[in-house]
Design a binder for these strands. Structure first.
Lengths: 148, 148
DNA sequence: CTAAATGCAAATGCTTTGCAATTCC
DNA sequence: GGAATTGCAAAGCATTTGCATTTAG
């Protein structure tokens, strides 16, 4: 259940980096958030639990979490980068409602396969891919039909 | 051939906005660039042709070009937003080489259809979607095998 | 012990904005 | 003529960085 712990500590050890309390706290917080988050949300959540970690430190820890494969950035929202934890989760893509901000995750094997075929065609070695669809969700559509 | 001209001027008229020389110049420059570009490149290209348009103005014109459907933002690269003109072009997606920065465009009808089906399933009305695949291009892969 | 990490405050760099002067319609 | 637009310089703001201090291993 806490395999991300091992994964992160091993990553750090390999790089000759330290597994500090700050890094542990950020890591755990990230895995306690079951949605997309940005730096501010992360900072505030930590703070509410008495974990006063500076923004600079969080900014320095996020790349470590990304490079160790625990999280990924998803998209920008209001000029801030959003993240989500991915370790232990299957790859998925997103529908993003531009009205209410809701995010719907979906998986589609067929699309994945087609993407692989495309990469092969171009002799391209994929590192990662992101598919995001922006639009209006069911709820917002209904509201708009009523007239807000 | 210059239908974007009409499209843009009509968009501006509808909004009660003016079709100034600056707006015309930026529009034309954007359609003379047949690749992805960022603000700096656009600014420099205009300047080289004696079109001294301030960055502030360009920043103010870009949203107009986006909202009129002439261009779209694609992705961030070195912390700058990249754009491409889309008017008169079919939708396509991108392979981005993280090593050399090369961008390969591709179209895939099957993926498009699958996306539509997904939207339908969730009662989601799409505005736009973006599929980006990051990785290493054929050339960079070959170089890496040789040892740079 | 000592290289790495932290926090703070200052710096960076893209983007936005206030405002006076100018221009399109 | 008057609202819209432009350019400039200043402001905003997310993110990064220098540096003195602290800490993990």
């Amino acid at each position: 259940m806490e395999n991300y712990n091992r994964k992160f500590s091993e990553y750090l050890k390999n790089k000759g980096l330290k597994f500090t309390p700050e890094r542990k706290n950020v890591m755990e917080e990230v895995f306690s958030i079951h949605k997309h988050f940005n730096i501010d949300e992360l900072y505030d959540r930590l703070r509410k639990q008495g974990k006063h970690i500076s923004r600079a430190t969080i900014y320095r820890i996020l790349p470590l979490l990304i490079n160790s494969g625990l999280i990924q950035s998803t998209f920008r929202c209001q000029d801030m980068i959003n993240y989500e934890h991915i370790f232990g989760h299957k790859h998925h893509d997103h529908l993003v409602c531009v009205k209410c901000g809701k995010i719907i995750e979906f998986k589609n094997e067929k699309i994945e396969k087609l993407q692989k075929a495309i990469c092969k065609k171009y002799g391209f070695k994929e590192i990662e891919h992101k598919l995001g669809i922006k639009g209006y969700c069911r709820v917002c559509l209904a509201k708009m039909k009523n007239g807000t």
